[in-house]
Design a binder for these strands. Structure first.
Lengths: 183, 183
DNA sequence: GCATGTGAATAGGTTCACAGCC
DNA sequence: GGCTGTGAACCTATTCACATGC
């Protein structure tokens, strides 16, 4: 059984079979009618499309509690996202090691990003400074930012921004709880 | 100037004025034509609707790196989300203190959730055990779960599930980078 | 026979545009 | 005059349903 049906994928992913088929159809038609999708072929196609077969230079800016946790976050490593540059503004941390990466100072950020050829920055800094750090990262040639700060960042169109909104999610649950009491 | 226009809100929030007006219109019509929205009134309404004037009992399950970081995450505290129960499966951690909260063992989880009257659980456990822990939390009366594990959880309809998908976001950026190289 | 791939139908959500009110 | 509130137009995304091919 090296094959999987759209219904099975939907079941796992919490969506519908039609949705799965429609989405996959945009990547070409490599399903076998009457059978389903070949698992090896499917993984290969998805890895390629998602760019998971390439290796991106990833830098972590902000080595506070969240940043440190992300540095060692297993799911990132498992999928091949290795953080090779770390920047922090705390002088006490600069020069120390995280794994085998030496923490660079905030004033060296642009240089560190450029010399490592970083394409992707994980931004784990306090909200008030997030926009400023993002601007500097963009100026240093970064093409994608994963923002963990609860702040609405503005970036140029050629830079991709991803947000991890822990606070918004929590507020969403608060909303649901408040509604639930009523209804 | 204790008033703000939909255009100004849109500017800050990275959306459009029409969108802001449409959304706010569902909460009643408390804007003043020709002026905008009263800031105190707007904050009050939003706080009430989001349930931020209520205090929810929040428990943290999983006191690993991510969990510990969340426990001390400033934006949560600032908005009034205080974690008053912590559970971890590591015997070395059980009985130790985080702030002034004593860490409870995994086998005490249901009891700890029940005796604290927890409505909301922050789930910061490894993906393979996330569903099992979620099921147990639901059985213990939890009504909302904020899941940090890269896993698609299944919960009853009367339980609200929020996901913080760090890995998915990162994969999304990988996709954008891969596309960007081509186009 | 069974499951994909895909046009057609539907639903959902965003944008337009303007009447209404301050 | 300026800005909200909202029906209508529009656009995007999901669901349906079935012809197609293994």
């Amino acid at each position: 059984m090296a094959t999987v049906s759209s219904a099975a994928l939907a079941e796992r992913g919490g969506t519908t079979a039609a949705q799965v088929r429609k989405d996959l159809s945009y990547l070409g038609s490599f399903g076998k009618r009457g059978l389903g999708y070949s698992v090896p072929e499917l993984t290969q196609v998805l890895r390629r499309v998602l760019g998971l077969d390439s290796t991106w230079r990833v830098a972590l800016v902000g080595a506070g509690r969240i940043g440190t946790a992300l540095f060692e976050y297993e799911p990132f490593r498992k999928r091949g996202f290795a953080i090779t540059t770390v920047v922090d503004s705390d002088p006490a941390k600069v020069g120390s090691r995280m794994g085998n990466v030496v923490v660079r100072g905030d004033d060296e950020m642009e240089q560190a990003l450029r010399e490592s050829g970083t394409e992707l920055v994980i931004l784990a800094v306090p909200a008030p400074v997030a926009q400023n750090v993002a601007d500097r990262a963009v100026a240093a040639g970064v093409k994608a930012i994963l923002n963990f700060a609860p702040a609405q960042l503005r970036v140029p169109v050629d830079v991709t921004l991803g947000n991890v909104s822990m606070l918004l999610e929590l507020e969403g649950l608060s909303y649901a709880l408040a509604r639930g009491k009523k209804g």
